[in-house]
Design a protein around this nucleic acid. Structure first.
Lengths: 124, 124
DNA sequence: CTTATTATTGCAACTTAGTCGCAATAATAT
DNA sequence: ATATTATTGCGACTAAGTTGCAATAATAAG
C-alpha cells in the first residue's frame, strides 16, 4: 500500500520519458493542460525524486528542472553531470560528462549542481 | 555623472569585501540591519554585477549569491569555478578550481554555474 | 462484489525571492 | 547656490514552491 498508480503520476512519468531532457514544473503543467493541479505536479515530482526515479537540478534561472537521465538509471545514482539550457529554444539537456571536483580537505559533497546556459547547436 | 557614491553602495561593497565568501541578499539585508531597503540592496547588487565588480551565482537552493571573488578581479573575468555551500554553517565559498566542460559541437557557453553543497571541514 | 483504508488529489492560502513604477532624496556638476 | 539626475524607499506585484485540509479514488480485505 506504499504507492498507487494514478493518472497524474503515469502521465508525468510518460512526459519525462518522451522528453529525453529536463523539464521544469511549468513545462509539465503546460503539457498537462489542466489535467492536473499545480500542487499535484510539484508533489509527484518531489515523490519521484525521493524514490530515485528522476533527479532534480536547479537552473541558473533559479528554477527546478527534473529529468529521467538515461545513463544513471539503474547504476548507483550518480548525477555529477552538467545540464545545458539554451536561451533560445529553452531546452535543458543532460550533458554526458561526469565531473570530478576536488574539494578542500575534509569537505563532504552531498549535492552537485552543474549548469551551463548559452546557445545550442541548432540555435547558435 | 555615471555613478554616485552612496552609503548603501559603500556599505554593501565593504560587507562583500570583509566576507571573503558569497553572500545572499538576505544575509546582506540582515547585516545592514534596516539601514537600506530590500529593493535598494537588490538594485545595488545588480548594478555591481553589470559593472563587473562582483559576480552572481545561483545556489542549489535557488537563491542568488554574490561574491567579490579574489582571483578574478583584474583579469579577464572568468567565473568558471564552483561554489560550495555548507548545510550547517551556511557559508558559500568560491572554490579555486577552474573547470572546463567540453560541450557538444556548436554549443556556445554564455553562463557557467557550478554549485556543490554538503558539509565543510569545520562542520563535517 | 462490497467495504474499509489511506495514498493521492484539488483547492486555497501562504512563503520567499526578486522585480518594477513612481515620487522623494541626495550626490555631483555647473 | 542651483540644477541635474542617479539613487533610494515604499508599495505593489510576479513567479516558484510549499502546506493544510477536506474530498477523491486506488488498493486491500472480507
Amino acid at each position: 500500500m506504499n504507492s498507487r498508480n494514478t493518472k497524474a503520476k503515469s502521465v508525468i512519468l510518460q512526459l519525462l520519458k518522451e522528453a529525453k531532457q529536463a523539464l521544469s514544473h511549468d513545462a509539465l503543467q503546460a503539457a498537462l493542460a489542466g489535467s492536473a493541479d499545480r500542487a499535484t505536479i510539484y508533489r509527484v515530482l518531489n515523490r519521484f525524486c525521493t524514490e530515485g526515479i528522476i533527479h532534480r537540478t536547479v537552473g541558473d534561472d533559479g528554477k527546478q528542472y527534473f529529468a529521467l537521465c538515461v545513463d544513471c538509471q539503474e547504476k548507483h545514482h550518480q548525477h555529477n553531470h552538467f545540464h545545458f539550457r539554451c536561451f533560445t529554444c529553452g531546452k535543458v539537456e543532460c550533458l554526458p560528462n561526469q565531473i570530478e571536483v576536488n574539494l578542500p580537505k575534509g569537505y563532504r559533497t552531498e549535492n552537485f549542481t552543474g549548469f551551463i546556459s548559452g546557445y545550442c547547436a541548432a540555435c547558435a
